[in-house]
Each structure stands twice: as C-alpha cells, then as structure tokens.
Amino acid sequence: MNLLQEAVSYLNDPFNWSRPNGILDLGAQHLRISLIAVLAAMAIGIPVGALLGHVGRGGGFTVALSNISRAVPTLALLTVFAVTPIGFGPTATTIALALFALPPVLTNTYVGFRGVDRDVVEAARAMGMGERQVLVRAELPLAVPLLMTGVRTAAVQVVATATLAALVAGGGLGRIITLGFRQQDYGAVLAGAILVAALAVLTELLLSALSWAVTPGPRRLPLGRVRTRRPEAAEVAAAA
C-alpha cells in the first residue's frame, strides 16, 4: 500500500472521524481558533484602516506593518509567548494568528478606502453628509472589494497556519500531522495535510462567494446608494 492509499484509508475509516479528538473534534477546534483570530484581526484592522484611508494618512505605517509581519514568523511568536504569562495553548495560538492576520486586513482596508474617487467623496459632502455618513454610505461600498480581498487572504493564511497550534498544545487538525510523525504513520500525516488544504480551499471559495455577494452592483446586495467603481491599478498603487 503506497502513501496515498494509506491516507485515503485513514480518511475512509469512520472511527477516525467520530472518536474523541478525531477529525470532527479537531476540525471544530481548528475552525474555532481560526475564526476567533480572523474576527479579532477584522475588529482592529477594518476600523483603523477605514479611518486612516478616510483621512488620507498612515500609508507608511500600514506598509511598514505589513513588511514587519512577513519578517516575524508565527512560530517565533509562539516561542516568545511560551516564556510569558500567556504560555502555551489555544490562547497563545489565537493571539499569534490574529497578529498574523492583521496586516492584510489593515492594508487592504486602507488601500480600499484611500482608492475611492475623491469626486465621489466631495459629492457626498456636498449633499450634506457628515464625515461618518461619508465613511459608511459613500466610501465603504466602494472599498468593499479590496476590503474583502484582505479578509479572504487573511482567513486562508490563518486556516493553513493554524496547524502550528498542535506544536503548543493548541489543538486543531495539526495534531493529526504531529501524531503521525511521532508514530511514523506517514499516511496519517498526508491525510492531515489533505484535510487542512481542503479546509483552506473551502474557506477561499466561501469568502469569494461572500465577497461577490456584498459587493454592490447588478444582482448583488445593496450596501449603499453610491454607484460603485473599482479603483484602477494606478490609483491603488498611488494610494499605497
């Protein structure tokens, strides 16, 4: 039996799905850690990015934060947390993943709001809208495509990276992989990798559909009264 056959056999065994700490339990833990991390990143990144993009400041900050996040691996953060009161476990993993997800959410939100046509903003103000109304009713609908791109990128990265939780007693599908390595059961290792990859692809597909649904336009959900216009590539580059 080759490695792929062993992985398929592992996935076809109902016991591996239904037992305690089986695929279903670990999958639920994986999703919970990922969801909390992404929601935390959105709760911070979207308001801050929207505000910075609205006032037209903070471009250098967002670019610097994005570059720093690429230089600091999540595993390094988990190692640092190990010697702090945070310690090991799901809490440390969730915080590390939230910090990992924050830069793409913040950067794309900033670029999305900064790329809104200034004529639209001035027209909204001329209609008597306050700054909060301009932000929510004029700029937000136009910024949604790039904003959702940031959320989708962050979510897929978090789902894939959450396998590291198993290294710090954080649960998730990574436990199948780490346990497989310990037992030299490489079929289980491949099965765990397939499950994580499938979950990441499913996340991408679901958020792509959600992004399509919430982007104003023909046959989509109305998020505002302003006609949408996707920023041109030159405008986005200039805003960044």
Rank of each mutant, 00 (worst) to 15 (best):
L24S: 11
I194E: 00
V38T: 01
G115K: 07
A209N: 09
L167I: 12
E204G: 09
A162W: 06
Q183F: 07
F61V: 15
I176W: 01
A197S: 14
L4G: 09
T91W: 03
W17D: 06
V201W: 10
G130P: 03
L173E: 05
L31I: 13
R230K: 06
P103I: 04
G224R: 05
G115D: 04
I44A: 14
N21A: 15
V105D: 06
R230T: 07
I86H: 00
P85W: 04
T203S: 11
G172N: 09
H54S: 14
L199V: 07
A143S: 04
S9N: 13
P104H: 00
G172A: 10
L106I: 05
L97K: 05
R227F: 10
V72Q: 00
L207M: 12
F100Q: 06
L102Q: 10
Q157A: 15
D25I: 06
V236N: 00
V214L: 10
V55Q: 12
T215H: 03
A124K: 01
V72W: 01
S9M: 11
I23H: 02
E6F: 03
V236K: 13
V136R: 13
V120E: 07
L99K: 11
I46N: 02
T91D: 08
P20W: 01
A124D: 00
V196S: 11
A37N: 06
A82H: 04
E122P: 10
R182H: 13
N2S: 15
A82T: 03
V63Y: 02
R229L: 12
A92E: 04
P216G: 03
V83F: 15
L31D: 05
T153A: 14
V196L: 10
G130K: 04
V151Y: 00
T203V: 12
P231Q: 06
S18T: 12
G45D: 07
P14L: 14
P73H: 09
T79V: 14
P47D: 00
T203M: 12
W212I: 13
P145A: 00
G128L: 05
P218A: 15
A155L: 14
A50G: 08
R152N: 07
V111G: 02
E122D: 15
S208V: 11
R229N: 07
G217K: 02
L65R: 06
F15A: 15
L140P: 02
E122Y: 06
L146G: 02
T84P: 00
A7H: 03
N2A: 12
R19K: 15
R125M: 09
R118T: 13
L207Q: 07
V121A: 13
V83R: 12
R230S: 04
R175M: 12
F100V: 05
Y10C: 13
T149S: 15
L99I: 10
V105K: 05
L173M: 11
V168L: 09
T74Y: 03
G217T: 07
P90F: 09
T153K: 10
G45S: 02
A98S: 14
L221A: 14
L3A: 09
D25W: 08
G187F: 02
D185M: 10
Q184Y: 13
F81C: 03
V189I: 06
G49T: 08
A191L: 05
G49Y: 02
